[in-house]
Design a protein around this nucleic acid. Structure first.
Lengths: 193, 193, 193, 193
DNA sequence: GGATAATCGAGACGGTACGTCGAGTCTTTCC
DNA sequence: GGAAAGACTCGACGTACCGTCTCGATTATCC
């Protein structure tokens, strides 16, 4: 019958983490600073979270953070849909704060594989599912070879995006087009040009 | 007439860094610990290196560390060469210590983009160059379409490998085959089945 | 109509304080520990006592703690009575737990003068009164000079005992005899040798 | 061949401790506050001192603190000398800061007997020695009985003073006179009035 | 006999200080 | 002048208690 956990404090901490991430990067985040920024005592943080990485995880997993809501187009043209997704994602990653967030995600994944898996599930899975579904429909429509592996394609897209974010390489239209072209050629049922 | 820098101390530090990386991971590496382990004073480290990340860079860039010497096959069969490379790389990444090293590399890249670029140049460029050269020869031989973009292919291979290492996903033959198949289909000059 | 204060809880706390004092010393006593030891909530302690020192005071003032009941002899021989008292007190202070208690008393007095005064009243006054009464009777009997100051004598006895406890000096018979001799010589009405 | 300990830092800390004692009392002294006040890092304090009490000890043992230099008169009249000493000591203890210091001394002694013994040696021993020497000369001169115990007298004086400081009782002339009279009567060789 | 009001336990909360660790800098002696 | 040793300041770590604040559950009384 003790006083219940303060949802207020919890949200403050998560919000402070999100702000700090976009600001100075994951490494620069300090439990002490987080507590101060959130107007919460250190003890409260230590009581509920075992590590900085876990706070990051919870903050990202839960927040309405930008990037999770990138449009997943579903038009008649597979290639156009893929290009469209890359365009949106590329624009998203052109903003410094978002690159910082993505980098923090990668850094924490490189450090804490388990948490990394959870985060990857949260952020990559929707995209993978979308690609798989999108390609599957193209297969039904006969636009894509039946023996193509939708998962392999999805992986390529995610891997490329992740790698671009890691290196800070802009996800330009040329690069995206080159990938989409390569993939489309590999899977389209249609003939040769 | 001043006393020259001690190459001895330098090598001790780099070696200690390599040992520590394979041991406890990049985050756990400490300048203080490094100095103790290398039998060198902290001052000597601070005199010659501006940051932990740079030591890591130098250690990796210079050391005969495993992974840099993965075979770059150049047989008559492009697909076989690619599969062969994936097999070697996959085996390499199946050993814990190597995954740790790769993760350290990714972590430091996510934290320090500039150094990350240098490291990427050192480790990814040889592979990229190899793929590009290999694909170019296949184009000369007429096995690959002339308008295929060798760089796009190289990027895919590196990105996939990096992403697998980041997530700790084993680079299985299936996954590799799926990718190689996809790519080969996309670029081969030959007809359709 | 409200629920009355729980005498039960009160006694638990005081008892816990007495136990803790004899155990780890006053400084090591913690409100939190006290609460846990007494099976009482912190709030209950804070509701009824303003400070740790006050709990100590109440615990000592109220408890049947050893030392308060040292015999106050009233025989025909003043010197023998004094010696007897010193013997009892000395034996009492030869036990570690009692020295610890005495030290706690001194420590809290040094820290909180007001409470110290109350505690001193409780513990020293009975002894002072006894000495004064005992000496007064000796004066009536003509064994002690009429112009002797009983209070000065009482003070000496108490001060010496307190000082011995503070320093952990055993209150030996020699030391006691030396003091009693000195005092008796100073006050006895009888002649000189 | 490392850098030697900074005598500067050491003195700053001891001085800060002396200031703090006279200010807020021993309990209120904080290592953190001490460090700040002394312009020294916490680490430096923890490197050289094992506890707050030990710093107190070193500060008092070493400093030219007031009280250690109370005059030890050596005139022709023993009683006058004793009265004179009490007068000086009493005046000294009438100043708040000095009572605070004395209380801190007592508190730390009650808590850490070993250190307390050292402190007592430093502060009480000179007085004891003086009383013993003074009484001894009076014995040589025949003013004091040969079988009087100078140490017992010295103890009385110190114990009384300590007890007065502990309780915050002013060491008035009346009280001092009562004690001196009692003692003098007990030891003087001369006859009766 | 039910309502009521202060009690109790539990323990979360914002704080302050603890004692430790490592980061970088500085100072000394030796080579 | 380079290098080992290690003291220095600084800032964060994770922990322990402080004194305050809800909670639900538990008693007395008083209507």
């Amino acid at each position: 019958m003790p006083r219940p956990r303060s949802e207020n404090a919890r949200q403050s901490v998560l919000a402070a983490m999100r702000r700090a991430l976009a600001g100075d990067g994951y490494d620069a985040v300090t439990i002490e600073g987080l507590a101060a920024e959130a107007g919460v005592s250190k003890q409260t943080i230590y009581r509920w979270w075992p590590s900085k990485a876990v706070i990051l995880g919870e903050a990202l997993l839960e927040g309405d953070l930008p990037g999770a809501d990138v449009a997943l187009p579903f038009s008649d043209d597979l290639a156009a849909d893929l290009r469209s997704w890359f365009a949106t994602a590329g624009e998203h990653l052109s903003r410094t704060e978002n690159v910082e967030l993505a980098r923090a995600l990668i850094a924490v994944t490189a450090t804490d594989p388990e948490l990394g898996a959870a985060l990857n599930r949260r952020f990559a899975d929707p995209i993978v599912s979308w690609v798989v579904a999108r390609v599957a429909r193209a297969q039904e429509e006969g636009a894509v070879r039946a023996d193509a592996d939708p998962t392999a394609i999805a992986d390529q897209i995610v891997a490329t995006t992740s790698y671009a974010a890691l290196l800070g390489r802009p996800l330009t239209a040329e690069r995206a087009d080159a990938l989409v072209d390569l993939v489309m050629r590999g899977i389209s049922a249609a003939s040769r040009d």
